[in-house]
């Protein structure tokens, strides 16, 4: 009765009617928005969920068509064997050390170069900065052969030949990556230089002028003042750099860097290893071990991301990456 009364007021009062219609419209938009977000989120997460399910399924579950998402006889065995075959802790330790040190190097070099471009006036600056953009745009496979040959017989200006007698072969070591990164040509260094440049350009000049008046040198200003203020850009570059360095297989393959250092390379041979060493001959079951291995490899990077993610998105917003 009450409802009918209310409906009556809605029908007869155009103002109330409008409010009602607006509310219905808002509800409708909200539902659609939730549906889209949940749907897209599912598409992103479904491979991960699938891998997790595979990694805890037992042999019986793998062939049971009734099993979907929840395995009937869950098992940790996949993780245990993948852990063993990946030689997980030592390999991951080496990889994290490698990725971490390269990230620090990227941060130091790229922030320096970005600052140099942002705050100093020097001849040819515009041309040189255009070269940074060129570096971002050129696909890395264009220069892969010369990189390979350069480090295959490494001999800058004949110095190595003078000391060592012959050019040294840096293949299968991590040195090419460190040399490239230290000289600002590492994985996507151009992009990081660009990000830092945009960020430093957005900082007020007065800070440095005050430092200069107080007798602070250029390098001290940079390390003690500018870098401390650059945390949004630093977090952005840190996340990008860790993620891309950790996931990189292109350079690791090119320089034949050992799979004991680059764990993403090891995943490629995991399935074959498990097939040959543990005599798991069924390809379907092998894939379950592969999924467990992939999850193990993803674990540290996801943890780093989850720790940094809130700062990261804010960092991108404030670091002027878009400017």
């Amino acid at each position: 009765m009450n409802l009918i009364k209310r409906l009556n007021t809605f029908i007869h009062d155009p103002f109330e009617m409008k409010i009602l219609m607006n509310k219905i419209k808002e509800l409708f938009v909200l539902i659609i928005r939730i549906l889209i977000l949940v749907g897209v989120g599912y598409v992103i997460l479904s491979p991960l969920i699938g891998m997790l399910v595979n990694a805890i399924s037992s042999d019986v579950d793998a062939y049971n068509p009734m099993v979907f998402v929840l395995p009937q006889f869950p098992t940790w065995e996949r993780f245990q064997l993948a852990w063993k075959r990946l030689d997980y802790l030592p390999t991951m330790g080496r990889d994290l050390l490698y990725t971490g040190s390269l990230t620090l190097l990227q941060l130091l070099i790229c922030s320096m170069v970005g600052y140099g471009f942002a705050r100093f006036e020097f001849p040819l600056k515009k041309v040189l900065f255009a070269m940074v953009v060129v570096m971002i745009v050129i696909p890395s496979h264009t220069v892969m052969l010369p990189f390979y040959l350069t480090f295959r017989s490494f001999d800058p200006f004949g110095i190595v030949t003078a000391i060592h007698g012959a050019p040294i072969n840096l293949m299968a070591t991590v040195w090419p990556m460190y040399i490239l990164t230290a000289l600002g040509c590492g994985i996507r260094s151009g992009l990081y230089i660009y990000i830092f440049n945009q960020f430093f350009r957005g900082l007020p000049k007065e800070i440095e002028e005050a430092a200069f008046v107080d007798g602070c040198g250029v390098w001290k200003t940079y390390f003690k003042i500018m870098l401390r203020n650059a945390s949004p850009a630093i977090i952005t570059v840190t996340v990008f750099s860790i993620v891309w360095q950790f996931n990189d297989t292109f350079y690791a393959k090119l320089f034949l860097i050992s799979e004991n250092v680059v764990i993403s390379k090891k995943i490629a041979s995991l399935q074959a290893n498990i097939a040959n060493l543990d005599k798991v001959l069924d390809p379907t079951i092998q894939e379950l071990y592969l999924d467990a291995g992939v999850l193990l490899i993803l674990l540290p990077i996801v943890i780093v991301y989850l720790i940094l993610q809130k700062n990261f998105i804010e960092g991108v917003e404030r670091s002027g990456i878009v400017g």
Binding site: Y115, L128, L183, G184, V218, Y222
Partner: peptide, 13 residues
């Protein structure tokens, strides 16, 4: 100083 700051990248490039 500007050149010094971008020197590592310039050499590498």
């Amino acid at each position: 100083h500007g050149y010094l700051f971008i020197l590592p990248w310039l050499i590498g490039f």
